[in-house]
């Protein structure tokens, strides 16, 4: 008799335990899932070699060639005239471009993404020209190679050509302070 009662008790405790663990597990999963920003897409490129490119320049003759950056860290910024947040990060990029030019410690280039040269130049006339070159990617084909999904996006490539960081959204001093050391540049 007492055996039966004990086993019923044990079964009840087992159920209570299972139920509570189940609910706790569900809550933890929901908590993890719901607090994450679903628009933040992880980059598949970080830790891999930067895709090569050879694009016509936005302004003037010549081409923007990835091989020319070899041996130096590179900051590569995808931008477009139709992108509103690009305006927000514009002064930061100009500042960074001047710093790159001054120290020569790293290279910086822009990729004008899914845009026309006319619109892009008008954007630069209004916001101020970059102190560095931009290449044209009107079809967005290079953007696909980089796994770009929104504008703006910035890639941080080290001297050996490995992508060490990707930032989606406008650049800020905080982002640069985090990303630049990854490619051996003091912010």
């Amino acid at each position: 008799m007492t055996d039966l009662i004990q086993s019923v008790d044990r079964a009840r405790r087992f159920w209570k335990f299972t139920l509570i663990t189940g609910i706790a597990a569900l809550l933890v999963l929901l908590g993890l899932g719901l607090t994450r920003d679903p628009s933040r897409v992880p980059s598949a490129l970080v830790g891999r070699e930067m895709p090569a490119f050879d694009l016509p320049l936005l302004d003037g003759e010549g081409r923007l060639v990835s091989a020319e950056a070899a041996g130096r860290p590179l900051v590569l910024n995808f931008w477009a005239s139709w992108c509103v947040t690009c305006r927000q990060e514009h002064p930061e990029l100009v500042r960074l471009g001047l710093a790159a030019r001054g120290s020569g410690a790293f290279a910086i280039a822009g990729i004008n993404y899914r845009d026309t040269a006319e619109h892009a130049l008008r954007f630069l006339d209004r916001e101020g020209h970059f102190p560095y070159l931009s290449g044209l990617d009107p079809s967005g084909r290079l953007g696909i190679d980089f796994g770009v999904y929104g504008m703006p996006e910035t890639f941080f490539v080290d001297a050996s050509g490995m992508v060490r960081g990707r930032h989606a959204g406008p650049l800020t001093p905080e982002v640069l302070a985090e990303m630049l050391p990854r490619i051996g540049v003091t912010p």
Partner: peptide, 8 residues
């Protein structure tokens, strides 16, 4: 596409 955008 997976090498560019990941499993996503």
């Amino acid at each position: 596409f997976r090498t560019r955008y990941g499993d996503f």
